[in-house]
Design a protein around this nucleic acid. Structure first.
Lengths: 211, 211
DNA sequence: AACACGTTCAAATGATAGTTTGAAACTGTA
DNA sequence: TACAGTTTCAAACTATCATTTGAACGTGTT
């Protein structure tokens, strides 16, 4: 009776809901997706969300956490690999940071996570704050240490600021395709912007910013 | 009967609603403010919004437009003043761009506009797109021309990219006070971040990014 | 006074949202 | 087969929202 399900592990239904949530949230944003849309797209009953997750918000946070965890793992792995080599360069560090967002095959997860992070900046909740401090902050410290190696001239304080500005730039510039349309209207001769162009421009921008 | 009011000019009620909207939207975001909250905070009747603006969305866009217009005017004025002098420096251009957001006395309008712009990046509407292309794009072109003067080494395409990244960095880093809290947790010894610190760090970051 | 017009008001309307319910269906166990 | 626990389902519930309505109010004009 009314037994609370704190964290369901594996279930066909749960997987389908998370998959549907990622797809729909990426396209419309989670506040514009009703549970009825979500569950009918997933092929499950409306009540399934509350049964398996407890509430819509907890489902949203589960998706957010999954995504953040994935990106943090990618980054930390890449960073460790770089640090096993003997010479660390600024470009390598920046690329490893940007790649999970704008790298090949990562476009969708990057855009979705960017939306979440922007959303979290505007309207944070206890749950999203928890995810940030649990996953993002530890990764941030490792990256700041790496930047300290390749930018020895910058003070600790400067490094932290620039790191934060970098994350904001990356997230804001990866969310949605507004940027491409804006580019076209500001520079019609440049033509349409491919995702690769954006990534390379972003990397150049960030490398400059850390010098 | 049912006469549509395309653009009300001056009215005690209209002014009170816009003022209340700016205050409440800045604090909670416009999707978290109901018309009942807004109108009771403004001291007017619920129906006044639809009577004077046509819908909630049109009120939101009116506030957005007012704000964008104000910031664009400030920037264009500052830029013209700079260009009347004989030597234009990168730092001056950047400062004139950042100032309407993080300058003294502009904190509230900066934070509010930043929220709107972030919101617009996530969920644009026809109305917000119109404001962007009508006010922001012309100003952007003037600024890109100014950056071209002080950064002669950068190609037109590079200038446009960096300009866009700059606006994203500024908006994302001005929305809300998350950044300060994040800084504290990443660099406890730095202590609390004043707004001035943020502005100076931001300016250094952007100057670097354009070199 | 009588009228017309713009404005304000309390109340109703209609739609949509997340959530809850209780019975049915399904699962594996004895 | 009978039973217990879990999961699914259609339907109802509760709340909130933007919007509309039609009467009341105020004001200036004739």
């Amino acid at each position: 009776m009314g037994m609370q399900r704190p964290a369901d592990q594996n279930s066909e239904t749960v997987d389908r809901m998370i998959k549907a949530a990622e797809e729909l949230f990426a396209e419309y944003g989670h506040e514009n997706v009703s549970l009825r849309q979500l569950t009918s797209h997933a092929g499950v009953n409306v009540a399934a969300v509350n049964y398996h997750f407890g509430s819509k918000e907890l489902l949203v946070e589960a998706v957010f956490q999954t995504l953040v965890q994935r990106v943090c793992d990618q980054r930390e792995l890449a960073l460790e690999k770089l640090e096993r080599g003997d010479t660390l360069t600024l470009e390598e560090v920046v690329r490893s940071f940007v790649d999970p967002y704008l790298g090949n095959g990562n476009e969708k997860q990057g855009a979705l996570l960017a939306r979440f992070l922007m959303r979290n900046r505007l309207y944070p909740t206890d749950g999203t704050r928890r995810v940030v401090s649990e996953y993002l902050d530890p990764m941030a410290k490792k990256y700041i240490a790496a930047f300290a190696q390749v930018c020895p001239k910058l003070s600790k304080e400067q490094l932290v600021w620039r790191y934060l500005f970098m994350t904001n730039t990356l997230a804001a510039s990866s969310a949605g395709d507004n940027l491409s349309r804006r580019l076209e209207s500001l520079s019609p001769d440049t033509g349409k912007a491919e995702l690769q162009d954006r990534r390379e421009a972003m990397i150049e921008f960030l490398i400059s910013a850390f010098r």
